[in-house]
Amino acid sequence: MPGLGILTIFVLVALLAPVLAPYDPHALSGQPLERPSAAHPLGTNDIGQDILSELIFGARISLIVALAASMGTVALATLIGAAAGYLGGWLDTALMRGVDVLLALPRLPLLILLAALLGAGLPQTIAIIALLFWPAAARTIRAQTQSLRRRGYIQMARQLGGGTGYVLRRHIVPALAPLLAFELVMAAGRAVALEAGLAFLGIGDAAAKSWGLMMRFALNLPGLLLGDRWLWWLLPPAACLTLLILTLTCIGIGLEERWQPRLKRRP
């Protein structure tokens, strides 16, 4: 899978960021707005930080967010989707109505509200992403759980006296694993995009070195696109983001085809 190869490169860059980056991304290693040079291959940003170093360290934020937020999303979605699908009844109705409401809510105001409630920072950003994304995944997981619940071996485990926790842990979640892997990867892709979007909107930790924030600061410079500065300041983080999101999406689609050829996505 070429997607995994590219993802591995991203992970390596993130892990080896202190070795690879020429400067501390927070250090004022040059004058503001330097053009590319030997000392600063991608120039410097508006306060004189090395853009290449920012870019390399930015992979860390994106991947941490991808990992944590997607796991948070899938954990929440699994908890709620599997509980609703498995237990059914009024709980299912209540949870799914809640999901419907959350899905119907406009995202942007919800984002801003959550950001206001939770404050800025990477953990908050991760929490916001997880809180935003779980409903859609929960719905898919619920549908799958419902069909699993009708499977004989799960009915038998329940009949034997297997409690909800046991059946979920032993049967439902393992049976959901391929779907969860898919949701995880797709949520990771969306999380990367949303983190960038949040950083871009200024919701989040403004001192973090993330690609979204790099783009935000670049675009904050009036007339950036009128000159050639965007070539080394805006384009690299945008390209990295696009590549990472595309990579994760490709892996997700690959997983979907491989493990769940008959899986029906949202009806």
Binding site: A193, F200, G212, M215, L219, A238
Partner: peptide, 11 residues
Amino acid sequence: NRPSFLILIVI
């Protein structure tokens, strides 16, 4: 700024 919400749109 009031940037587009999705980064892909930005791109």
